[in-house]
Amino acid sequence: MASAPRVSGGASLAGRRWRPPPLIKRRWLRWTLGLGVALYLAAAFGTIEVNWSRVYDGLPRGQAFLAAFFPPDFTSRWEEILEGINESLWMTVASTVVGIAISVPVGLGAARNIAPAPVYYFCRSIIAVSRSFQEVLLAIFFVKLFGFGPFAGFVTLSFATIGFFAKLLAEDIEDMDPTQAEAVRATGAGWFQWLNYAVQPQVLPRFIGLSLYRFDINFRESAVVGIVGGGGIGATLNTAFERYEFDSAAAILLVIIAIVMAIEYLSGYVRKWVQ
């Protein structure tokens, strides 16, 4: 690269080194973090007990195991699969509706910009408890309380929906445009009128998007709450595993994947239609 005439006055700059600025400016913090990560990884890998011989032994077994999945057998347990899927879908619909219905007041209460402090902390703690426990863990308890079957699954999913939905709704309300809210308040509107005219229009599109997304999640989770007795396709799947009917299990998994894809496609369609 020598053809073009060089700009004059640059001689003093020649030879000046350049390195890209580091991601973390403070040197001690950079080193501490790096060292911390390295130590953690060393400790983590040091304490994981991987029984490689068991893994190695398992590979041919795994192969046989996977082979048992093929070809998927849709026919011999079709009745039960159908029933399980139906149950899952009922649970999904009912729990999404109930969960969202409860989430709305909780979400309003958990938005810092519209709720008074005691309400805020109360609603936030409901959200924290609901979010901290995985659906399956909740299901164990609800099965204990309500007995086996889809009702326990329904309560589990509704409760889990609250944590997810109320949190995102609250964040959305906190992010809304305050000038619009102020303008409506300036008209002398009452609190509910204010919600209806200032808050609702701003959060509605995302609200619908989140509802569809949660519907999708609830369906997928309904496949596992059954493993601990919460009804639905999970129960069918668990039975198939217990009976070593892996070809039926494969069929169930494929049906789940197909339905999730269908829901995803539909929700994309609905979202486009809403906006």
């Binding site: 994981i48 007990e49 991987v50 029984n51 068991r54 893994v55 398992g58 590979l59 077994r61 795994g62 195991f65 996977l66």
Partner: peptide, 9 residues
């Protein structure tokens, strides 16, 4: 768990 055995792995 059925393939590689129980445990963290």
């Amino acid at each position: 768990v059925a393939i590689v055995g129980p445990g963290e792995f």
